[in-house]
Design a protein around this nucleic acid. Structure first.
Lengths: 150, 150
DNA sequence: GAAAATATGTTCTGGTAAGAACATAAATCT
DNA sequence: AGATTTATGTTCTTACCAGAACATATTTTC
């Protein structure tokens, strides 16, 4: 198989897709972070993802949280540390399996979840409402396909 | 307008789209980083983006690099610092506008670009080839639309 | 032409980010 | 059972990330 040169590499037709994927995610991320910052609850995007994931559960293991939020375990330790410092979550050991740690919302964390999650969804909804249902469905499907490439 | 509760918030139809956008970008990013790590050139994803952006130019200002790579200026300073330490880029002042700094590939940086850019595009291409041209075009278009929401 | 506004880049801060090494615990294998 | 393997979470390292404050230089406005 002939190797590409810089010319032929830069004209590969998938490159615009990569650029748009990064740009779209970037645009969303900045807006997402802005909404959290302005809400006054002092949550970072990662912290919010953890709080929103824990909401409505009786606590999850770090592994489960990581699977949902896509935060790797090494990073998650620090995120949970800071949420613990803020009094929004608590950790405890699980009966029967000494490896696992359960992380759950405290009463304060529960209140923050109930206030911030709907507020933030509303904040995002105002933008996503501008996308048609058909585009939304098609985009979701294609992104799923792209995820599956790797 | 009635505010959402946690129930109605979590059932908003745009949420799967957000999740897939994050998951697809995440999957791509991990694969992208893996390819750079294995190539042995020791480039991080951000460093590679800068090198690949500078390739084929006579040097760009930090602002221009940031516009293309989506790296904010505060972060870019550090990325360019490390590339400079590795001898892959050099900085100089621009005649006529004392605010601007030009960043350009050194001869070593040029060689790294010529070797790593095609190699990395080939690495990504092996995955994106599994996507049909129609899906690729549609995904690109929809991501552009999503980017435009914010 | 001087003052105000804008542009560019660096520095600083707190918080991720992934990966590797580590410690401990549980499951599996023989 | 005892040894090996796998699972879970923490710690450590290097680098990135955005935003804010800053320094400098240029442009605009009056």
């Amino acid at each position: 198989m002939a190797t590409l040169d810089t010319q032929s590499a830069s004209s590969q037709p998938f490159i615009p897709l990569v650029e748009e994927l990064a740009a779209a995610y970037q645009a969303f991320s900045l807006y997402d972070a802005e909404g959290l910052r302005k809400s006054g609850a002092g949550l970072t995007p990662s912290q919010a993802r953890v709080i929103f994931t824990l909401g409505g559960t009786d606590g999850l293991t770090c592994k489960d949280i990581g699977d949902v939020t896509l935060i790797t375990k090494g990073t998650l330790t620090g995120v949970v540390d800071r949420l613990e410092d803020k009094g929004l979550v608590e950790r405890w050991s699980v009966e029967g399996d000494g490896r696992k740690t359960i992380v759950a919302l405290t009463r304060r964390g529960q209140r923050v979840y109930e206030r911030e999650f709907p507020r933030h969804v509303e904040f995002l909804k105002s933008k996503f409402d501008k996308l048609s249902a058909a585009d939304r469905a098609k985009a979701t499907q294609l992104l799923q396909k792209i995820k599956g490439l790797f």
